[in-house]
């Protein structure tokens, strides 16, 4: 029993009055404990433990094949974990709360011959919506998202961007409490990227939990409350942006004109990410940024100089490098032992 509202903790969210949704009956929308999934000899997810608090935007980071999609599929109960436990919206099995989850897979498909309004409504009905409500809501949503003229058109007639919008609406039509979007920004033009971003933010405002995976670090950095990174089946870090960045080396962000090839010679430089007009320079521990600035002023024309915490991009790349180095070392050690 919840002390705040007097309802049972497992009261289905869809019968709760809307304002109460934001009110937390359980601390977490998702809890993953020691979950492992193998496909034959390949370990796709290795002893993953993770908690996603309710009402936040949570980003899954990782290279292709790192284990993000497998994790998501286990959360959606499409795959069963080999070991460990997954608790979704307070239930030990996602199958029990399927109707309260929304899922947009990375590889998106539609029935080409179905009409847009029909397919959005169909996804709603599959989530247990009343058929009449689903039909009405589908038309309303499509109109709201600028596809009002396309209600009666077949999906095959739409552009890729419109198709992606239709898929997103099919994911959201039943007002899910937890939405999982696998690579939602991939293949979107800038306008539709904004639509996707606004949709994610709106869901957060409505008290829903949004998990999405992405390769676009800037997007993740701007949107997320919390972030985790998985590399080669293992969790590398997890927490708020602040927590993730805490304790990491600060770097120099430099906006410049001139020859960028000399940047790695900056006194005290450890790594340089040069983008041509802008560069991130990371210094050895203890190196003085002032010395570096003085040296740089002579070499290139500086438009902006900033000493700040590393970007998510930098953290991502460095984590991959470190993890690979560690794995190589472990592998080498094992090879030596076996010799």
């Amino acid at each position: 029993m919840c002390e705040a509202c007097g309802l049972r903790a497992d009261t289905p969210a869809r019968i709760l009055p809307r304002p109460l949704l934001a009110h937390s009956h359980m601390e977490h929308a998702l809890r993953i404990r020691e979950v492992t999934k193998r496909f034959g000899a390949h370990v796709a997810v290795d002893r993953l433990t993770l908690e996603v608090p309710k009402g936040c935007i949570f980003v899954f980071l990782g290279q292709n094949g790192a284990g993000k999609t497998t994790t998501i599929r286990m959360v959606m109960s499409i795959f069963k974990p080999d070991s460990g436990a997954i608790e979704v919206l307070g239930q030990p099995d996602a199958a029990l709360v399927k109707d309260r989850l929304g899922y947009l897979p990375e590889e998106k498909g539609l029935y080409k011959k179905m009409k847009t309004a029909e397919i959005v409504a169909y996804f709603g009905k599959l989530k247990g919506m009343d058929p009449a409500d689903a039909d009405q809501k589908a038309s309303a949503l499509l109109t709201e998202y600028g596809l009002g003229d396309w209600l009666d058109k077949r999906c095959e007639a739409m552009s890729k961007g419109m198709g992606q919008k239709v898929q997103l609406l099919g994911t959201l039509i039943h007002n899910p409490d937890l939405v999982i979007l696998d690579e939602p920004f991939s293949g979107l033009d800038p306008v539709n990227r904004d639509v996707m971003r606004d949709t994610i933010l709106r869901m957060k405002r409505e008290g829903r939990t949004v998990i999405f995976s992405t390769h676009v670090m800037e997007q993740a950095e701007q949107l997320c409350d919390r972030v985790m990174m998985i590399h080669k089946a293992r969790l590398q870090f997890s927490g708020t942006l602040e927590e993730v960045k805490r304790g990491r080396d600060f770097g120099i962000v430099l906006h410049y004109d001139g020859d960028g090839t000399i940047l790695p010679q900056t006194p005290g430089a450890l790594r340089v990410n040069d983008h041509g007009k802008q560069a991130e320079i990371f210094l050895h521990p203890g190196a003085d940024p002032q010395t570096a600035l003085r040296w740089l002023v002579d070499k290139v024309r500086i438009r902006k100089f900033e000493h700040r915490a590393p970007t998510l991009h930098e953290i991502f790349v460095r984590t991959v490098d470190e993890a690979n180095a560690r794995l190589a070392k472990d592998g080498g050690a094992r090879a030596q032992e076996s010799n």
Binding site: I78, L101, E107, K108, G109, Y111, K127, T171
Partner: peptide, 16 residues
Amino acid sequence: EEKSNRIIEVLLSSVS
């Protein structure tokens, strides 16, 4: 067709 156009994954998030 359903499998090759990947709609199957959306369906499986709603039905067994």
